[in-house]
């Protein structure tokens, strides 16, 4: 029986942890939809698979992505689902550890991609916040036309987007620090 769950995560690391925690209990992710906010699970042996989420340079269908996934399949890595450039992959736990990036250069690149995603999301939120704040002010000024409820809805919209904006900026900073540390270590170790 397929189980469907909706979930929103701000980063792929939390999603990955969530998928692995569920897999450890025997709920294996077998698909995803709605830009990776809807997940399908099947009940099976606990701990059979290890899941990883990767961000690739191109979306599904691009020849480079197909080549990469074919390469991974030779090593026992199974493609599960994708949403834009995010991919859910899994490997049988019995086949050994499942790490995709083990060298400094790819770890730096991975953190850079995560930084870009965080900053792009934050930048998309900015005009939405501005719009919400603007409409709220407009409603406040024209109190004789608009109700308190309208003001409240718009103000709440602005507040929620602002909180998301702050979270995205924090995420960006976290990845930026991680990237810098990797680069600094690179001056000493390979």
């Amino acid at each position: 029986m397929k189980i469907k769950l909706w979930k929103y995560f701000i980063d792929e690391e939390s999603t990955e942890k969530w998928l692995n925690d569920l897999a450890a209990e025997g709920l294996n992710c077998v698909g995803s939809g709605f830009l990776m906010h809807k997940y399908y699970f099947e009940q099976d042996q606990p701990g059979e698979y290890t899941y990883r989420i990767v961000i690739l340079d191109h979306a599904m269908g691009h020849p480079e992505t197909t080549r990469y996934l074919n390469f991974l399949r030779e090593g026992g890595v199974e493609y599960i689902a994708s949403g834009y450039r995010h991919f859910i992959l899994r490997k049988k736990t019995a086949d050994g550890p499942f790490e995709l990036h083990t060298d400094r250069a790819s770890l730096i690149k991975k953190n850079k991609t995560l930084m870009n995603f965080a900053i792009v999301t934050a930048l998309i939120l900015l005009p939405i916040i501005a719009l919400n704040v603007g409409v709220t002010i407009m409603h406040l000024v024209n109190r004789h036309i608009y109700t308190t409820l309208m003001v409240f809805i718009n103000a709440m919209g602005a507040a929620v987007c602002f909180v998301l904006f702050v979270i995205m900026c924090t995420q960006w900073r976290r990845y930026a620090l991680r990237k810098r540390r990797l680069q600094e270590e690179g001056a000493i170790h390979e």
Binding site: F71, L72, G76, E99, H101, T102, D103
Partner: peptide, 27 residues
């Protein structure tokens, strides 16, 4: 083939060097 390279590297270094599939693909 790619996966055999990964296994060989691990065996030669007694498990000290483990290459991730993504890293190997790039290399």
């Amino acid at each position: 083939h790619g996966y055999a390279v990964m296994q060989n590297v691990e065996a030669l270094t007694n498990g000290r060097v483990v290459m991730g599939a993504g890293t190997l693909y790039g290399a």
